[in-house]
Design a binder for these strands. Sequence first.
DNA 1: GATGAATGAGCGTTCATTCAT
DNA 2: AATGAATGAACGCTCATTCAT
Lengths: 211, 211, 211, 211
Amino acid sequence: MATAAKPGAVDKRRLILDAGVRVFARRGFHHCRVSDVADEAGVAYGLVYHYFRSKEEILNTLFLERWQIMLDAIAEIDSRELPAREKLYGVASFIIDSYRHDPDLMKVIIVEVTRAANSFGALHLDKIREAYLGIAGIVESAREQGSFKSGIPSEFAAMCFYGAIEQLLTAWIFEVLPRTDEEYEGAKGLVVEAICGGLESVQNGAASPSA
Amino acid sequence: MATAAKPGAVDKRRLILDAGVRVFARRGFHHCRVSDVADEAGVAYGLVYHYFRSKEEILNTLFLERWQIMLDAIAEIDSRELPAREKLYGVASFIIDSYRHDPDLMKVIIVEVTRAANSFGALHLDKIREAYLGIAGIVESAREQGSFKSGIPSEFAAMCFYGAIEQLLTAWIFEVLPRTDEEYEGAKGLVVEAICGGLESVQNGAASPSA
Amino acid sequence: MATAAKPGAVDKRRLILDAGVRVFARRGFHHCRVSDVADEAGVAYGLVYHYFRSKEEILNTLFLERWQIMLDAIAEIDSRELPAREKLYGVASFIIDSYRHDPDLMKVIIVEVTRAANSFGALHLDKIREAYLGIAGIVESAREQGSFKSGIPSEFAAMCFYGAIEQLLTAWIFEVLPRTDEEYEGAKGLVVEAICGGLESVQNGAASPSA
Amino acid sequence: MATAAKPGAVDKRRLILDAGVRVFARRGFHHCRVSDVADEAGVAYGLVYHYFRSKEEILNTLFLERWQIMLDAIAEIDSRELPAREKLYGVASFIIDSYRHDPDLMKVIIVEVTRAANSFGALHLDKIREAYLGIAGIVESAREQGSFKSGIPSEFAAMCFYGAIEQLLTAWIFEVLPRTDEEYEGAKGLVVEAICGGLESVQNGAASPSA
DNA sequence: GATGAATGAGCGTTCATTCAT
DNA sequence: AATGAATGAACGCTCATTCAT
C-alpha cells in the first residue's frame, strides 16, 4: 500500500495520481478515459489498475489526501490565539493559496467532488461536512465571546463563508474572475470583509443592531 | 419547437421534460439513461428523440427555461423602488422559494449545470453570469447611493451573496441542513443579514469604517 | 419477453440463440467472444444485449429450453405401459437422437453445462438432477415389480445409465467413436443391453443371483 | 524439469502444483488467476512463471502426473490372474479411492480435463483414450474366454463402465450423492454389479442370451 | 406522432505474461 | 532462485443515437 519509492526512483503511483489531477481537471472525470490518465502519466494502461482498484479510487484518493490537509489546516488555525476575523482570514487564505498553488487539483476537488452532489459529493459527505464544522467552530467561539452576532447560527454562518469562497474559486475556474496574484491576495481580505463586516456601510446604521 | 399541445391533450414533450427533472435529480445526469427518462415519462424510447436532439438537450432545455425565469425575477426585483437589502432579500426569497417549490428541478440546475464547471456549466457560462451581473447591479446602485461599502466591488459582492445562497441550497440537497418551511423562511433573512450586515456585532466597532 | 416474431419475419432472438449454439460448440463458451456470436448471427453487437442480459444468459437459455424438452420426454416415456428395459431404450433413444439431430446443441449442453461442475453445472444442478430422478423413477417401478434387482438403488442405477450414455455422447463429440447412423442406432440397443442385461454372459451363472 | 528439491528444503514447484489443485478445485480453472495460485502457494507471483511456462502448463502437469498413475494401475490390474469382474472391481476401486484420497485433484482432472471437450480434454485425448483402451482390454479378454457377452464390443463396454464411474465421481463432486466412506465402498461393488451383472433380475430370464 | 428494435463506438476492467532487479 | 512491478491485448457490457414501420 504505502509503496515507499526508493530515493531517486520514480514513484509511479504518484505519477498516476498527478496525471489524474491534470486529466480530470482538463476534461472532467466523466469525459476522460483511464487510458488518458495512463498516457498522461507515461505508464502502461494496466499499471493504473495495479495501484488503484478503479478510476473512481484515483479521484477518491486525490480528494481524501488534499481534503485532510485542509481539515488539519483549519484545526491548526482555530487553535491559534487570534480574533475570529483573523482566523477566518487564515482559512480563506489557506484555501485560496491552495488553489493558487495547484489550481488543477483544487478544480478537481471542487468540481468533481464537493459540488458533485449526485456522485462523489454524496460519498464524501461526512468529510466535506467536517470542514463546515471546523469553520463553524471558529464562529461559535466568537459568538460566545460576543464579537460575532448571536442571531446567526454558527453552522449557518460557516456555510455562507464557505459558500462565498467556493464561489470565488468557481469563478476563477470558470475564468469569470481574472486569475492574477493581485486578485487572489485581494480576495482574501475582501471575502472576510464581506462576510464578517457585511456589505453595508457602517453609517448605514440600523443594520439590525445585533441581528 | 414550441409544439403547443391541444387543450386537454397530453403534451408528451412536457412529460419528457418533467420526467427528466425527476430522473436527473434522483440519479444524476450521467448515471441515468435515456430509457430511464422515457420510462419515467411513460413514453416510448424513440419519442424522446422526436422531441429532443440528444439527452443533453433535455437538460439544456430545463436549465434555460428555469434560469430565464430567475433572471427575469432578478431584473423585476431590481426595478422596484426598494433599499438594496430588501432587493437582495427578494432575490434570496425567489431562489429559496424556487427550491422549495420544485426541489428536484433546482437540484438538477445547480448540481448538473451551475456547479458542473467541466460540462454544462461551461456551456451556459454566459447565462449563469447574467445572474451574477443582475445581483451585482443591485449592489452597484447601493454603492453609488452610499448605503453599501465602496471597498467591495459589486461583482465580488454578488458572488459572495450568490455563493452563500447556492451553498445553502446544496446543504438542503445534501440534507446537511433540515428541510422544513421554518428553515427555508428563516434562511432568507439570515443570509441577507449575514452578507449585508455581516457576522460581526455592531458594537464590535472598528469593523473597518467603510471597508 | 415472448417476442413473437411476425410470420415471415426473422426472429433475431432466435438467430442469436442458434448462432450461440454453433459458436459455443465450435470454440467453447469461454473461448469465444460475444462479438463472435453476433457475427455468426449476422446482427449488430448491441442486439445481443437487447435480448440477453449477458453472454451467460444465452447459454442458460439454450440449456433450459432443451433440457426441459428432455425432461418432458422422459416423463412421457415413463407414463407408457412398457417394460422398464423398453422405457430405458426410449430414453437412450431420445437422447441419442437429440444428439444426432443437433450435435452442436447437445455438445454445448453437455460440455458447457452438465459436465461443467464449477460453473453452469452448479447453477443448474437441480434441473440436471431432475433427469436422474426421472430415470430413477423408471428403475424404481421395475424394482417394485421384481423385474430389476432390488440390490441396486434406483438412483444409483440411474446414474450408471445416464453416465454411460453421456460418455457415449462425449465419445462422439470427441470423435473417439465413429459418427454414423449405424453407430447411433446400434448404440441405443447396446447401452440398454449393457446396463440392463449386464456385460457378463448369462451362462456365466453366479452373477450374484439378485445382486 | 525434474528439479529435485534438496532434502529438507521446500520444493516450491510442488508447492505451486498443490496450490493449483486446491485453487482450481475451489473456483475452476477459468475463474481463478495465476496470482490466486501464487497466493495459495505462498510464493511470489513471478515464481510461477519460473517453474511453468503458463497457467495451462500447471493443469497439464497435474493431469499427466495423476493420469499416468491411473494408467499404470489399470495395466497392473489387468496383468493379474483374476476374473474380469474382479479386475473391473479393482479398477473401480482404484478410481474411487483416488477420489477419496484427494478429492480436489480428481475433481480438477475430471471437471477441467476429461470432461472439458473443448479445451484440455481435446489436448489430452490420446491419454484419456488410453484409459478406455486399458479397460477395454480387460473386457476383451473376458469376451475371448466367454465369460463376457460377445455382442457388446469391448470398447463400447469400456465406455459404459468408465462413464458410470465418472458419473458417480461427478455426483460426489456435485454433492448429489452423500460423501461417506460407506458410500464409497458400497459404490465399488454396486457399479461393478450394475455393469457386469446388469440391472435386471436373473430370473427375468431370457435377457438376450448372448446379446 | 409514436414505437422499440437495431446499431456500434466506447470504456472500464481483467489478467496472463514479461522483465528488471 | 525469487520478487512483484510493469505491460497491453482482450473482452464484456453500456447506452446514446438511428431508423424502419
